[in-house]
């Protein structure tokens, strides 16, 4: 299926139609845990993007070398290597973020998105396309985390990326959105909204298609009746 995908299709799939968080519902655990702020969301997202990009690259490049029987341990070693590199770099250069994301950086190893893309895409597609898949899936994940983190930060703290005026004059700060329960609530509401919009779009497209078919049938009938009269 994925073998015939173009770069544009890969990009669209990663960012929108197969968005890992809202459409495939993968990586829900870190999604709920780290999206207490937009900055946490973007950091976790970019760390995951790095791992996705490089693990897809290596797995795709070695797909004919890795025997089928040991593919899972090989993928795990490759993914864990890049996660540990991200962890070491963050600890050295971004210690505050490292503390803030805590154990969830290490847990990228078992993030379903990465393993799913390695197993379903990188192991069956050319290197460049696999890199693109990793990049766009990662960016789709990052965008989703920033969206959720931004909403939760605004509602619970009245800020966005730690900046901005105190918004408590417009609405009271709702601390519940900074807690786990707020994560579930925001995730559910945003997913419902996205599904609603996607359904509406699909229905519109189907209606347009049906209208076009109807118009074609009418045109054909008109042509037939014209021919009879003639």
């Amino acid at each position: 299926m994925a073998k015939k995908m173009s770069l544009k299709q890969v990009a669209k799939a990663g960012l929108l139609s197969e968005n890992p968080v809202f459409r495939l519902v993968l990586g829900t655990c870190p999604t709920l845990a780290v999206t207490t702020s937009a900055l946490n969301g973007v950091s976790m997202g970019l760390a995951t993007t790095f791992v996705l990009f490089f693990s897809n690259l290596i797995i795709s490049a070695l797909k004919h070398v890795i025997p089928d029987k040991v593919r899972i341990p090989c993928y795990i070693v490759i993914i864990a290597t890049f996660v540990t590199i991200v962890e070491m770099v963050m600890q050295k250069f971004l210690p505050d973020l490292y503390d803030s994301l805590g154990v969830f950086i290490s847990l990228i190893v078992v993030n379903c998105i990465i393993f799913a893309r390695a197993e379903s895409f990188a192991s069956a597609n050319p290197v460049l396309l696999s890199m693109a898949d990793g990049l766009f899936m990662g960016l789709g994940f990052t965008g989703s985390l920033v969206l959720l983190g931004g909403i939760r930060e605004i509602l619970s703290n009245g800020t966005f990326f730690g900046l901005g005026a105190d918004l408590s004059a417009w609405f009271p700060k709702m601390e519940v959105f900074g807690l786990t329960v707020g994560g579930f609530l925001t995730f559910g509401l945003v997913m419902a909204l996205i599904n609603h919009l996607a359904d509406r779009r699909t229905k519109k497209a189907e209606a347009r298609k049906a209208e076009a078919q109807k118009a074609e049938v009418q045109k054909a009938e008109a042509a037939r009746s014209g021919a009879k009269e003639g």
């Binding site: 070695l62 890795i66 025997p67 040991v70 341990p73 070693v77 290597t81 590199i85």
Partner: peptide
């Protein structure tokens, strides 16, 4: 051999 090679390269990189 493949798994060992991957683990070795990972170890060196880390």
């Amino acid at each position: 051999v493949v798994l060992t090679a991957i683990a070795l390269v990972s170890g060196v990189l880390l």
